[in-house]
Design a protein around this nucleic acid. Structure first.
Lengths: 361, 361
DNA sequence: CTGAAAGCGCTTACAG
DNA sequence: CTGAAAGCGCTTACAG
């Protein structure tokens, strides 16, 4: 048995071999370059370049000699240098809120697949919902000369990107619109989705319906609140102040908001949850309630069908959002796009039980 | 109201402004360089470099003139060129299986945070569990001259990375060990976790226990099966062939495997699910069964506590895996590490009900 | 305090 | 079919 670190519980298995054969010093200094390959093969630099890039005009014999030198030296073309000369980096950037959020995983993967189909790599970073960090990340990606940028905005002012866009960086915003600049944007229909979801609750007899959403400065949160208000107004219901709560989506805040709505002489009989994080906490709160409370959540959630009752949601397709945005980005890079557009993807109401509960009173 | 595309349901809102002010042609040709800034400010190239990089030895007046030129031209340093000269790219690569898998989201985010703390960007890509694609991706990242590579192996032969590692690319493997090369690896204790989970089922009276896992060539799947067998053997139970099933983790295959184990004259009374994807499908199958069947799953799952019964799991900390690996990577880059190590992180059994159900017979 | 020259590792445009 | 020269946009090493 190997020793276990008391503090971390890790088991450490030291390896007997050494790392001594790893070359020290500069990362590059130790790597063979085309020049080295050329010298060893006894040919010119350009001939090596031809072989490496599979260009025509090299005799089989020369090619063989070059290839042998490549293999012997363990040469791998430095794409960084290539990129500097060629102009395009064949990489795109994705700035999102948090890679650990299940909403962004499929989105990021979809962007990656489109990039891959176009031979590009994806660099991504999380803004953590911090506008300064979003800007810092986006500009760092521009400094690396990504060909394009997919941005899920944390901030509401993207004028800092204007010089980059003018310089040719393709840019598409997803999930939320760009602020104060004119750019392509791909959104889900937050307003319509929320309106449908709340109308569904109203159709099942509810009138005192609560809304818990993200911070009001976030576009989707504002739009979903607007959808909620529209549905209520359509039904002739006057929304009371105590029924709506917007703010950060950490469990403590959401729990407090939900518990407040559910207390007092006239508690809400249903809740509309503004996104997946809100929904998860509200489910926990409702599980503790004596009487059943109806719930519709924005965003679908894994295992939603296995809850009791099943969770009714307004689903958006995050992978489709990502794919649509990335395809649009590459069309910008192809030069086939002219005017910035706003593309809105429809949402889908999925009924599973929680949204069809009647009012408890 | 705007027109709606019949096929996709998208609402298209054409923008009235034009993209005509976007400069055409090469990505780089249009961007100002230090040379342009120097010309405009009437100084030498090196002075611009000093100002851009905040180096000392520039009079306030000169600095102001340079800064004005920078702002006027919208100059942003080309880090691609900088990197070529400096040697380090300040970027690391992460090759994982699927960014859309909830297990890898937190892992990737954790790697990103460590990279950020070291001033590095993260390029990541999904291998889709395809060894060829893993290799292609890893080598593409090396060609971009990432300083280091965190790899979640899809294949079992990583000798293709030997020249890169020799050339100085820091490399850490996570979740599964490297194949046929000697390298740092950070793992969860799959064997111990599975053994604990199965022992837990045995302690609750089960003897006919099924195991459904991923493809046997995947290290974690093999280790968890080994843990299952060890627990069974410890209890003196002879495992029947029909009780174990390894293969792809798509819902169809897992469903068939589960249903087979649960049919016949002597069905299993409990199932150990080899990972989160297996668990999700098994939960669905069990929900359809007439009699209760106990379940313990490897990997925790969101909302596991809200299922009926709550889901008992062997949890691993995917964020910690990522953080540990990334920290090790940067220690390699600091030059403070000598011998490759294998670090094993402990798992944790979380009991919530499903694993404590008694045998139905 | 300031800047001209050389070079990072490739590709481009050209000549032989 | 092959290769020498120039250049991508920076930094390094050096001189003034």
């Amino acid at each position: 048995m190997h020793p276990v670190d008391d503090r971390t519980g890790r088991r450490i298995v030291p390896d007997t071999s050494r790392r001594a054969d790893r070359l020290p010093g500069s990362r590059y200094g130790t790597r063979p370059t085309m020049k080295d390959v050329a010298a060893r093969a006894g040919v010119g630099l350009k001939t090596v370049s031809r072989v490496v890039n599979g260009e025509p005009g090299v005799t089989p014999d020369t090619e063989r000699r070059v290839q042998e030198a490549i293999d012997a030296l363990g040469f791998r073309r430095n794409d960084s240098a290539r990129v500097l000369r060629k102009g395009r980096t064949a990489s795109i950037g994705l700035v999102l809120e948090d890679l650990a959020d299940p909403f962004y995983g499929p989105l990021s993967r979809a962007v990656e697949e489109v990039a891959r189909a176009h031979g590009a790599l994806l660099i991504n970073g999380s803004s953590a919902e911090d506008p300064d960090r979003e800007q810092e990340l986006a500009l760092a990606l521009c400094a690396r000369r990504v060909d394009g940028l997919v941005v899920i905005p944390a901030g509401d002012d993207h004028r800092y990107l204007e010089p980059e866009i003018r310089a040719g960086v393709a840019t598409v915003f997803v999930d939320r619109p760009a602020g104060k600049i004119d750019a392509d944007v791909v959104l889900s229909d937050s307003y319509g989705g929320a309106r449908d979801g709340v109308a569904h609750l109203i159709a099942h007899g509810h009138r005192r319906i609560g809304f818990i959403g993200d911070m009001p400065r976030i576009h989707t949160a504002a739009e979903r609140l607007r959808g909620y208000r529209a549905a209520m107004e359509d039904a002739g219901i006057v929304v009371e102040g105590a029924w709506t709560s917007l703010g950060v989506t950490d469990p403590e805040r959401v729990r407090r908001a939900a518990e407040e709505m559910l207390s007092g002489p006239e508690p809400v009989t249903a809740i509309f949850a503004g996104n997946n994080r809100v929904t998860v906490t509200v489910i926990r709160v409702l599980a503790e309630q004596a009487r059943p409370v109806a719930l519709v959540g924005f965003d679908d959630i894994e295992l939603a069908d296995l809850l009791h009752p099943g969770l009714t949601v307004v689903a958006q397709d995050s992978a489709l959002l990502g794919r649509t945005a990335a395809e649009r980005l590459f069309r910008q890079l192809d030069g086939t796009l002219l005017a910035p557009e706003r593309i809105e993807l429809p949402t889908r109401l999925i009924t599973r039980g929680s949204g069809e509960l009647p009012p408890a009173d």
